[in-house]
């Protein structure tokens, strides 16, 4: 038997198994799901293992002519993770957890502050009107300024949304709604092309119905 053809049939059955979930949960879906979980869990572990343990740890800390000793810290923290396997010393596994949480919080605190807050504020500062601009550009600039400020007002936690402040918050939520509606509508097309890809595989590659 030709393995190429076997591969196509296998892929076709997997595809149909997943699609059948749209009707209801069934044996084919369960089978596809079971295979998917088993294989992908193994796959990613293998990839991470070779990549991190061999590609990064072994190469940098042991094989390299100028070994990087600090990589061992990672290994030690990793081994501490395994303490969870025992009930007695399980609490030691909290150390690597605490390390990860602290590092993530510390690292991303400044990163988000700069790339989200500061960069966005800076790029919103723009002239409302410049020589040569049409009325529409001016209008658009005003819309953006109002949208950003009112959007921020909506997120205020410590002030009641009432009076003028309430109106601004209301406008803010409207802007958010436009954002959500527009992004939803915009992505529909790319979602369709995904399905086209699968149908193209089923009708074209598998059933050979498309010339």
């Amino acid at each position: 038997m030709d393995w190429q053809i076997f591969g196509v049939w296998l892929a076709a059955f997997m595809t149909l198994g997943i699609i059948s979930f749209l009707y209801k949960d069934n044996v084919f879906y369960k089978a596809a799901e079971a295979i998917f979980i088993g294989i992908s869990a193994g796959y990613w572990f293998i990839v991470f293992f070779w990549d991190s343990m061999v590609g990064k740890f072994y190469v940098q800390a042991i094989e390299s002519p100028e070994p990087e000793h600090h990589v061992w810290v990672g290994l030690i923290l990793g081994i501490l993770m395994l303490a969870r396997l025992s009930n007695k010393v399980g609490w030691i596994a909290r150390w690597p957890l605490a390390f990860v949480v602290g590092a993530t919080a510390g690292l991303y605190m400044m990163m988000f502050f700069v790339s989200n807050a500061m960069v966005q504020v800076q790029s919103t500062i723009m002239p409302l009107w410049e020589t040569g601009d049409g009325w529409f550009t001016v209008f658009n600039n005003i819309v953006i300024i109002i949208g950003v400020t009112c959007g921020l007002v909506y997120f205020f936690f410590s002030k009641k949304h009432e009076g003028a402040f309430g109106v601004a918050a209301k406008i803010g939520i409207w802007f958010l709604m436009v954002t959500f509606g527009a992004s939803f509508g915009y992505t529909v097309m790319s979602r369709m092309s995904l399905m086209l890809g699968r149908l193209d595989f089923l009708f074209g590659t598998w059933l050979e119905m498309i010339p």
Partner: peptide, 17 residues
């Protein structure tokens, strides 16, 4: 919602075929 799914399938499949 399965009726909607069916419609989407027929629509895309027929316009592809």
């Amino acid at each position: 919602r399965r009726i909607i799914f069916l419609f989407m399938f027929i629509t895309v499949a027929s316009s592809l075929l």
